[in-house]
Design a protein around this nucleic acid. Structure first.
Length: 965
RNA sequence: GCCGAAGUGGCGGAAUUGGUAGACGCGCUGGAUUCAAAAUCCAGUGUCUUCACGGGCGUGUGGGUUCGAGUCCCACCUUCGGCACCA
């Protein structure tokens, strides 16, 4: 008999064992058998959306990593929560359903079933009793419930409070009822914005009580964290929906499907994420409070993700400055321009202004209005646009129309263009008349859509000024020589000095001081304000699709909207397709519009009919809070029980791809902070440690037509790819693994051929977890050889266990060293080096007739998280009678035993004893002499005791140095 | 342009407090086994030089700190990721 390592039957056996025994079931507080003395560890994967294509071998990299970590933590005695679910609402699932012409409700559950079995095939230790899917009504009723909390809350930005650490936090979400009360009790007055909403300017109806219900509601809409507004949105006609800024690529295409996206005003539901700009930014690095009696924590996130979020929030400090605009014929003030600048200290260098083509000063819709009828006399020829001799209004009209045609890509040419608007503005600090241009290098989306141009100290303004012959006035002294303009900081010059009794005396001040002084005076004279500006925009939250969470909202016939108690079930509709078209101006009708009146019409508490909201929530809604539902997935009374939430949160380790840096990871932080403010969760941040696994890349092969050839039909010879059928040589390209490139393999296929343990080991061994590394069909064989040698070390050719014998000192030392190394590597997610340590140890055991029991057991304990099936099988064959391996305790190493044996030798300098060095006993005598000599030489150079102590010990060679006088 | 990450053999990559550079794996070379091949096992494998022992040179480039630098500092080059006319 010749028993081989039969991975297929071993893996099937243990896969079934873990599932049927519920080996990885997690017991939380308030459940039977909860062990309250155990520390918890919440290990989370970014859950997949259930695509019909299934997983390829690139997908599970992160899942394998989190599985290793959670098995390891479990063996260390933690109560590990390691759940899995499916992000099954949203565009990807729906697009798949459309393409395959199957209803999303049906196809989604089918896809979930197939992906679940793929995950189980990989031997991943999830607690499947906690599985969730965002499209199931027992889940999305709570998504709707949380939406209601956002709708029923406002951000009180004046609320100053302290968290459990005593950190002062400015701003807090509070129930909208409290705001209503403040208004009705007269403790709060309508803001000017509220008055604008109600068109109350000049009217004397500023009292809350004087407003009707609808008017009151439209005021509250200005405060709600989920509010409705008609704004310019990203409309994608071919997807039939609006998209969030985060879902649109740089070149104006949809991230999903790569369809063109158009700007269009539409009434939408919006999340007031901008209210949290400062806190979202600050908490990336701040110490964060947990509940009473718990330690604080700071986010352990990759720097790249933190900086991406910081850039996305885009906080910049500066000032708003108001410029009067003059009527060019009469010279009287006819309008005013607000600009934002980060360099108010350069105001004296502002020699012209520029407004965006969409700016209300020059446009209303597409009509040029308000601008002078004739070019002012001083107008230079180059200021009049591209067509010579045309009138000012035509020139502007042409320019603005052209600018709107330009896509983001065209603008990257960066050739600055502009047309004189005919207006002059007055620089508020020195009264200078400066021309106002319309220029497309100013964008309406940022700041005030208008700038004061300081060509001496801004590259763009400089380029523009040079092109159009505008004045350049230097107002900041620069160190040394430079060409062009100077954008750095320095000392103010050519501005008023303090002696001139001018309030704006900033000459001689450093940039920082000049900024502060000029801003202060502007504020005093009501010419400007200190402001903080953010790039972050509010989050457009409604989608004109079918497959998403319906809003728990009903609009009263009187025109105001209110929440209804969830669940609001998604109606079953045969025709769920969105109304797509290539016409960007077509009226928008969400699919739910076609749901019958029995769904659309709701009876409100007061017996009055109302119409349900017909938009649905975006794909990101469910993933904003799913990690909370895993904690208490079957709770019918709450989204998550308080006790369980306090026990398991925050997530200790969150593994997923970096592509969610500003989408899911920003949105979920925002929701979590709202829930935190409302006292519904105990931590201000959801994810303590975040880790981005790298991709698995693979070569793809194209024939001479450019058609991708399935990787299975490619034969490799001398590094070149050839078509197995035609024999033609193929072009090789390296890149992402995916269906498109036909270079991905399903895990089952690789698992069948090499074994699941081999696949797991190989994916972890390829390189550091965060790196992207190429798949190699040769490389994976190395891991298979390793496991075969492990098997052969334990099981002889007759199928008998070869465990016996005495432990040698060398074996003991190797064992303790390996325990230390592997523990450290796994703790820090360096699985590649952990595996290397195991291979090295195993190589040392090859050739032993038999392995001592203690060595064998420890070896399997360390191997278990990495290659769980084979180690379980060998453990069972060892018949150690203590249950299966997943329930064993992680071995501890004795550092003393792991250390090398050493000898101590004297150091002599010039015949005088200077101390002792401790050296490895096993070192060769020749080398030992060399070290001593080296040591003595060194000591001559640096003979002081302190200096010799600085001579750092070489591990394994020189162990310790003791210096005497 | 700005921000972030990284450059080590033929390849993937080790060297996580400044201390034996190249662990471990792939590939390759030689050998054993085999009629032969695959698989397996043994030995070798940074580079130059030497019959050999040995020696020189080696972590993107150029400087610096240090007894000692892949690791720290300065300048530069290259690659990847993100943002980008952000006022």
């Amino acid at each position: 008999m010749n028993e081989k390592y039969d991975y297929k039957s071993i893996e099937a056996k243990w896969r079934d064992f873990w599932l049927s025994q519920k080996t990885f079931k997690t017991v939380g507080p308030s459940e039977d058998d909860f062990e309250s003395d155990k520390p918890k560890c919440y290990v989370l994967d970014m859950f997949p959306y259930p695509s019909g294509a299934g997983l390829h071998i690139g997908h599970p990299k992160g899942y394998i990593a989190s599985d290793i970590y959670s098995r390891y933590k479990k063996m260390q005695g933690y109560n590990v929560l390691h759940p899995m679910g499916f992000d099954s609402f949203g565009l990807p699932a729906e697009q798949y359903a459309i393409e395959h012409n199957i209803h999303p409700a049906e196809i989604t559950e089918q896809n979930i079933n197939s992906i679940r079995s793929q995950l189980q095939f990989l031997g991943l230790g999830y607690d499947w009793d906690r599985e969730i899917a965002t499209s199931r009504d027992d889940f999305y009723r709570w998504t709707q419930w949380i939406f209601s909390r956002l709708f029923e809350s406002f951000y009180d930005s004046d609320n100053v409070w302290k968290d459990a650490l005593g950190r002062v936090i400015v701003g807090k979400a509070r129930p909208i009822e409290e705001l209503r009360k403040e208004f009705s009790e007269g403790k709060r007055a309508l803001s000017s914005e509220d008055e604008a909403t109600l068109s109350l300017k000049g009217e004397q109806r500023h009292l809350w009580q004087a407003l009707g219900k609808k008017e009151q509601e439209s005021v509250l809409n200005n405060y709600r964290l989920a509010y409705q507004d008609e704004i310019v949105v990203n409309w994608c006609p071919q997807l039939g929906t609006v998209l969030a800024n985060e879902e649109v690529t740089n070149d104006g295409k949809s991230e999903r499907g790569n369809f063109p996206v158009f700007k269009r005003p539409l009434k939408q539901w919006i999340m007031r994420i901008t209210a949290y700009s400062d806190r979202l930014l600050e908490d990336l690095n701040a110490p964060l409070a947990q509940g009473i009696g718990k330690d604080s924590f700071t986010l352990d996130w990759p720097e790249a993700i933190k900086s991406m979020q910081a850039n996305w929030i885009g906080r910049s400090e500066g000032a708003e400055v108001f410029f009067d605009v003059l009527d060019s014929t009469t010279g009287d003030k006819c309008s005013s321009l607000k600009v934002f600048t980060t360099r108010p200290d350069t105001l004296f260098g502002a020699t012209f202004m520029a407004v965006a083509p969409e700016h209300p000063l020059v446009t209303s819709g597409n009509e040029v209005y308000n601008v002078p009828a004739k070019w002012p006399n001083e107008t230079q020829d180059s200021w009049r646009g591209e067509t010579p001799g045309v009138g000012i209004r035509d020139a502007l009209y042409d320019y603005i129309a052209q600018a709107q045609q330009k896509s983001a890509n065209d603008r990257e040419e960066k050739e600055k263009t502009g047309v004189f608007s005919g207006f002059y503005a007055v620089n508020p600090v020195n009264g200078n008349k400066i021309p106002v241009f319309v220029a497309d290098y100013v964008s309406m989306d940022y700041g005030a859509g208008a700038i004061m141009a300081v060509p001496a100290h801004d590259d763009r303004d400089y380029a523009f000024a040079v092109k159009y012959g505008l004045n350049i006035v230097e107002v900041v002294s620069s160190p040394g020589q430079h060409e062009g303009c100077f954008t750095g900081e320095g000392t103010s010059i050519n501005s008023p000095s303090g002696q001139e009794s001018n309030e704006f005396g900033i000459n001689g001040l450093k940039t920082v001081e000049a900024k502060a002084k000029i801003t202060e005076v502007l504020e005093q004279k009501k010419l400007g304000n200190k402001t903080v500006h953010y790039k972050l925009r509010d989050w457009i939250f409604s989608r004109q699709r079918y497959w998403g969470e319906p809003f728990p909202l009903v609009t009263h016939l009187d025109g105001y909207t209110m929440t209804v108690t969830p669940p609001v079930l998604l109606p079953e509709m045969e025709d769920f397709r969105p109304e797509t078209s290539s016409d960007p101006d077509r009226p928008v009708e969400p699919p739910l519009h076609r749901a019958g009146p029995e769904w659309r019409i709701a009876i409100l508490d007061d017996g009055i009919q109302g119409e349900r909201e017909l938009n649905v929530m975006p794909q990101w809604a469910g993933s904003c809070w799913y990690f909370l539902r895993f904690i208490d997935p079957n709770n019918e009374n709450s989204f998550c029980g308080e006790e369980a939430e306090q026990y398991f949160m925050p997530v200790d380790l969150y593994i997923g791809g970096a592509e969610h840096a500003v989408l899911h990871l920003l949105y979920s932080r925002f929701w979590h902070k709202v829930l935190y403010d409302l006292g519904l969760v105990s931590t201000p941040e959801p994810f303590k440690k975040l880790f981005n696994q790298g991709m698995i890349t693979a070569d793809a092969f194209q024939d001479d037509r450019g058609v991708y050839i399935d990787i299975r039909n490619v034969e490799l010879r001398d590094g070149e790819g050839y078509d197995k059928e035609t024999g033609a040589q193929l072009t090789r390209t390296a890149g992402k693994m995916g269906k498109r490139y036909k270079n991905g393999l399903p895990p089952e296929e690789v698992g069948e051929e090499f074994g699941v343990d081999t696949l797991r080991l190989y994916e972890m061994y390829m390189g550091p977890l965060e790196a992207s590394t190429p798949w190699s069909m040769e490389g994976i064989r190395g891991m298979q050889r390793f496991l075969q040698r492990v098997w052969r070390n334990f099981i002889d050719l007759d199928g008998n266990l070869t465990i016996s014998g005495q432990v040698t000192p060398d074996q003991t030392k190797m064992m303790h060293q390996t325990i230390l190394r592997v523990t450290d590597h796994i703790e820090n997610l360096r699985f590649n080096t952990a595996i290397a340590a195991m291979i090295e140890w195993n190589n040392g055991l090859v050739g032993c007739d038999s392995i001592p029991e203690e060595i064998a057991q420890t070896f399997l304990l360390l191997l278990n998280p990495l290659a769980p099936h084979i180690s379980e099988e060998l453990w069972e064959r060892g018949n150690w009678g203590r249950g299966n391996l997943a329930h064993q305790t992680w071995p501890k190493a004795d550092k003393a035993l792991a250390a090398e044996d050493t000898v101590t030798l004297p150091i002599q300098v010039n015949g005088k004893m200077r101390g002792q060095i401790e050296v490895d006993k096993h070192i060769e005598e020749e080398e030992l002499k060399k070290i001593v000599l080296e040591m003595e030489n060194v000591s001559k150079f640096i003979p002081s005791e302190e200096a010799i102590k600085r001579f750092i010990v070489v591990p394994g060679r020189i162990v310790n140095i003791v210096v005497s006088e």
